[in-house]
Every structure is written in C-alpha cells, then in structure tokens.
C-alpha cells in the first residue's frame, strides 16, 4: 500500500485513462452479454426441452407450452417443503390459469411410489399436470439437487428464475407470476 500511495498520481492517471480505453475498445471489439440461445437449467438460458407421461398416461412436451408462462416444479410426496408449498401452487393455478399460466409438476418418481403420488395429488386436489420422471432423466437434465426446486419460465421459453428449496410463499409466487404475465 505504501508503494501505491507514494506513486499515486501517475498510477491513478494511468488507471483512469486505461479504464476509459478498455471500456471503449472492448465494447466494440469483444462480444457483449446477450440472452443465451443455448439451453441450460439456469436463469438467462433456454429451458431444456423434455417429454414425460402424466398420471393418466398421456405425454406432455415442455416445448409445446411456449407462449405460456410456465412454473416447472420438481417434487416428491415424502418431501415436507413440497407438501407445504403445493396449496400455494394450486391457488395460483386456479387464479391465473386463464391469464396464460401453466404449472408443470415433475415428480421424482425414481425416489417415490405411485401410491404415494396419487394420495398426495388427491389430498391437495391438484388440477395441474403431474408428470412422472420414472428414470430420473429430467431431474438430471435440470440438475435438481434439492427438493423442491422451481423454475420460472417466460413465454419465450427462457428460464427467468430458479428457486432452490421451499416452501415458496404464495405472496412471492404471485409477485413473480404477475411480473412475467405482464411482460
């Protein structure tokens, strides 16, 4: 620090001139940050596409939901925070479905039982699609490391936010959904 203070005048002048030149040159010569066209399970990237069967056996493809705001939730019937947040998801779905909201709840079936899932869905009266990830491939694709994990996806299919853990409070969910719907 002594050295910096002793030579502060030339150091400061040089650093400011260098900074201005650096900003000027790099802004025109190097690539600027842009929305990523590549898909990855993080905010700012395109949501990785997948197709999974629901409880009735029909298949749902995430890519088909482009144009809607999608809440993609990873859950399991034994997970306490998942139980705590599901009523909030159902409430938001009931209120906002007509506005273009879709909730896709991917069950980590590789660590769950079909009986447990069915009892969970009926006890919380869930009306949104419940998808079964039997081999865990979609959990792997989205690098889910903790349950619940929620991805907020905009109408263009871009991930806007990743919420690891829960429960997500209803107030927070409403605020985020409103913001995406209004865009």
């Amino acid at each position: 620090m002594n050295w910096i203070i002793r030579h502060f005048t030339p150091i400061s002048i040089l650093s400011i001139i260098f900074s201005i030149l650096w900003i000027g040159l790099t802004s025109f010569l190097l690539p600027l940050p842009v929305h990523q066209s590549a898909s990855a399970p993080r905010a700012g990237f395109s949501a990785p596409d997948f197709s999974l069967p629901d409880l009735q056996g029909s298949s749902l493809q995430l890519g088909d939901l482009k144009g809607k705001v999608v809440i993609l939730n990873f859950w399991a019937s034994w997970c306490s925070p998942c139980k705590a947040e599901m009523p909030a998801f159902q409430s938001v779905y009931s209120q906002w479905k007509e506005e273009g909201i879709e909730i896709v709840a991917v069950n980590t079936t590789s660590q769950d039982s079909l009986a447990g899932i069915q009892s969970f869905v009926s006890s919380y009266q869930l009306s949104f699609p419940i998808l079964l990830d039997s081999d865990g491939s979609v959990n792997q694709l989205y690098r889910v490391q903790a349950l619940p994990t929620t991805f907020l996806i905009d109408r263009q299919g871009m991930i806007r936010e990743v919420i690891i853990g829960g429960p997500v409070p209803e107030a927070s969910l409403i605020q985020k959904v409103e913001m995406l719907i209004k865009e």
């Binding site: 900074s19 900003i23 802004s27 025109f28 600027l32 940050p33």
Partner: peptide, 26 residues
Amino acid sequence: LLLIDTFHGEGALILDRFRQVQLFAL
C-alpha cells in the same frame, strides 16, 4: 470489476453497447 466484467456472460447494457457495471465501476 471494470476489467473482469468484460468477460461476464450476463449483464445489462446502456445504449445497447456499453456494459452498465463497467460504467458504474468507472
């Protein structure tokens, strides 16, 4: 920060050209 932000893959722009963080750091 001004130097490293040049290599950041995300961030807001001013006038569609200049990185907001770099100008703020300057």
